[in-house]
Design a protein around this nucleic acid. Structure first.
Lengths: 342, 342
DNA sequence: GAAATGAATGTTAACGATAACATAATATTA
DNA sequence: TAATATTATGTTATCGTTAACATTCATTTC
């Protein structure tokens, strides 16, 4: 005596109810032109009434798909600002409505294999900040998953890569400050292992090196980690030194927010007593006091291009077999945190 | 002639290579005691060498599991602060390492059915802010998915529910202000449809009503939507009125940050000229200028309890058949944004 | 009106894993 | 040493779906 599975609606249940074969049901629900419109309608209505939910595992087993796109952050638990995390997720989710969006943090994985423990996604979007990620990216690729890396240049060969031009963004921002008469510069760096930290510092230094009248106050170059706390503490150090920069470049807006707090503590007015700059143009930058002069990192655009590319790869429409490498320009957003010293 | 699938390692491929049956391979990889240790070792090594990745769909088909937990926000695209979004995700991800974490926004779904389009999760955590969600919660339950709702009281029957005590949190905060000598109160409300908006306003009003010496300045009760912008604009309105409250309660910290900016614009010092309070104790509240007095909403604890409950439900260990209803107390965090008028 | 066409549906075999039920191989007992 | 446990392995069915390959039935064609 075979046990009838009464508590679940499958295409076979529907088939029995409709008096057709399960294949016909499958065809009807997939809008196959092989089924008579009338039959199709009846089956669809029945499926609806019976509360049919297709079994994604069975579908996936046949089609060898997971209906999942994985999004991988370098650091989910710390070192990534909430703003960036949330904005990235929002944007990806909006653009990938048809897929289940699985959030991952490379910092939570003991090793590369952990990435595929819960199954292979149909595509992987790495929102990468860290060189460490490359072995994970490589592993994903090796396992045949379409991969796109955004936010940071990857060394993994043949991977589609969309990144902001952080170097020139900072370079131009510093030149702007120099034009306003700034001569002595400080820097609060980002998380040591992040590539952005390196590029932003390089843009900072190269811009200053280009102008003989300007110089880096090395005492006022302090390590940080992109957090508000680190900005606060770094600025405390800078302000306790003897030699005082007229402008401190903060490697992101969070850091700048912490730095402002420190200035306040020391009774210094921004930008009257000291000027600050950030990076990112986080949503709160314009609501800071004073409004923060910063560099707009086009997160949305980068993400959009990245997701579009990933979709193309997943659907096998990639026009060229040459992986796209795209650098998106940043933009200086001038507000009130940099004094005009002329 | 059967086509050999050469480009994929399955248990059958491994079986052939090891000279055993595929069942033995399955058993070995699942650490069954039925397999000789020696055989087991050989198979595991082989699986490793061959880069075997189990097919999650096949597994799931047999076990009727998805290995996915869905997390559902009322609003993913707007109306939810980045801070809250990111913190919730971080916390859930940390506690649910064994599952794929699928992010969803109810605002992105045309209707209840859309929720299950991409398959049923093994469990659903609703981080709910809005009464609208109830029909979605109900639908999920109706389809047999274990459900936990956190952050907001749900009316759906029999659902595990963990929420903060917003009402008393605000009530006590306002009484604290009254003790400091505040008598005239303003309020910037949250997103109209959110239940938190209602409870926070009620706590605010009831606390003031209890003390005859204090009163609500109705001109200074302004709608908002939990965003910095709304705080800024609402405060602008309040400050252009004739009757001036001594303290404005902002329905969350974001709002408070916008309100401070507005005060600055009007040349008012917080708390010397006007006092502010927030709600949430967002990570940046202590770095605001001045440090924001606010109400700590124990997001981490609420999430932790919620996830633990969900795990129990998914694993069928729920001790009682009575759904847990838990209210977690908030805590007043005193900083520098409320003046002592005594 | 038989043969050929085509539309609609049915039968059966995958997909890759687990699980129930054999069976073979070895160890234990009488 | 034969009978019997015990241990290790193999065979086959199954999950719910799609897809390849029949088959049926009505319609057109000559």
């Amino acid at each position: 005596m075979k046990k009838e599975n009464l508590d679940r609606t499958t295409i076979k249940t529907i088939a029995k109810a409709a008096g057709v074969s399960h294949t016909t049901v499958s065809r009807a629900l997939n809008d196959s032109p092989l089924v008579k419109p009338q039959t199709k309608l009846k089956i669809k209505r029945l499926a609806d009434e019976m509360g049919y939910i297709p079994d994604i595992n069975a579908k996936g087993l046949v089609s060898n798909k997971a209906y999942v796109v994985g999004i991988y952050f370098s650091r989910l638990q710390s070192g990534t600002s909430s703003n960036f995390l949330a904005e990235s997720i929002r944007q990806v989710k909006k653009l990938l409505a048809d897929y289940t969006l699985a959030i991952n943090g490379i910092d939570l994985m003991p090793n590369e294999n952990a990435m595929l423990r819960n199954g292979k996604p149909d595509g992987a979007l790495f929102i990468s900040q860290c060189e460490n990620d490359d072995s994970y990216i490589q592993h994903m690729r090796d396992n045949g998953v379409p991969v796109v890396v955004i936010n940071r240049k990857t060394k993994v060969a043949g991977v589609t890569n969309v990144v902001p031009d952080e170097y020139h963004g900072v370079f131009q921002a510093i030149e702007y400050a120099i034009r306003l008469g700034h001569k002595k510069f400080g820097l609060i760096k980002g998380t040591p292992k992040f590539t952005s930290t390196h590029y932003r510092e390089q843009g900072f230094r190269d811009a200053i090196a280009k102008h003989p009248e300007a110089k880096v106050v090395e005492q006022a170059v302090i390590d940080g980690n992109y957090s508000r706390e680190s900005g606060f503490h770094a600025m405390n150090k800078i302000l306790m030194n003897s030699e005082f920069p007229s402008l401190v470049f903060c490697s992101n807006d969070e850091t700048a927010a912490g730095a402002i707090k420190s200035c306040q503590k020391f009774g210094l007015q921004v930008p009257t007593d000291i000027s600050l700059m950030g990076f990112d143009n986080a949503d709160y930058a314009k609501f800071m006091v004073p409004g923060l002069t910063t560099i707009y990192k086009p997160v949305d655009e980068i993400t959009r291009i990245g997701v579009e590319q990933l979709k193309d790869l997943m659907e096998g429409n990639s026009k060229s077999d040459q992986a796209l490498k795209k650098i998106v320009t940043t933009e200086l957003i001038i507000r009130d945190s940099v004094a005009d010293l002329r």
